[in-house]
Design a protein around this nucleic acid. Structure first.
Lengths: 88, 88
DNA sequence: ATATTTTGACCATTATAATGATCATTATAA
DNA sequence: TTATAATGATCATTATAATGGTCAAAATAT
């Protein structure tokens, strides 16, 4: 009934998303790697759902002009947690 | 005029968010570390804005029951990219 | 069709994240 | 107040992400 989403699944989806965006832009792994100043292997592993660091994914988001948006969302989520007094 | 958000800033905010949620739950770094099966040092570095792996943050999100939500959002974003034909 | 580019798969090496420990400082409880 | 717990800081070791290379297969271009 309830499918369980595993960490592996999320990493796979992130990889597919990055690959889809890269394809949409019509650039190769090598080109993306160079613009992020990482190796092609890092891009490849990211797209294939291997483990990677937050630095790597944030470089991708920065390239996509999504860094400020994520920053705002995290900040907002934090403020929400801090402001809402525990209900228990 | 336009403040530039850097990767360092986002990691700092993520760290503060995790810390805020942990505090809200009233648990220590050690308790959180144990429930995620990681070391306290890993939690500490995460909260202090150091670099960390996607596995670590996904374990946190799983603990917060946010894994399925993130999975859905990434999948949706991916579908959006794939479906929207390039405008250029 | 063939040529070219891209990608997935390896692999050895290097860089660094994760671990487990200790200690001093700070925050919280008794 | 004093005792206890939690946190930040540091460090040596271990695990693993990142790098740079090669090669074969797949995709794309000519």
């Amino acid at each position: 009934m309830f499918e369980t989403v595993e960490i592996k699944d999320v990493k796979n989806e992130i990889g597919l998303l990055v690959k889809a965006i890269r394809k949409q832009r019509g650039i190769s792994q090598i080109q993306l790697a160079k613009s992020l100043d990482v190796s092609r292997t890092t891009i490849q592993n990211l797209e294939l759902g291997k483990n990677f660091t937050v630095n790597t994914i944030l470089k991708v988001l920065r390239e996509l002009d999504l860094l400020t948006q994520l920053h705002n969302e995290v900040t907002q989520a934090k403020a929400h947690v801090v402001n809402s007094k525990s209900m228990y």
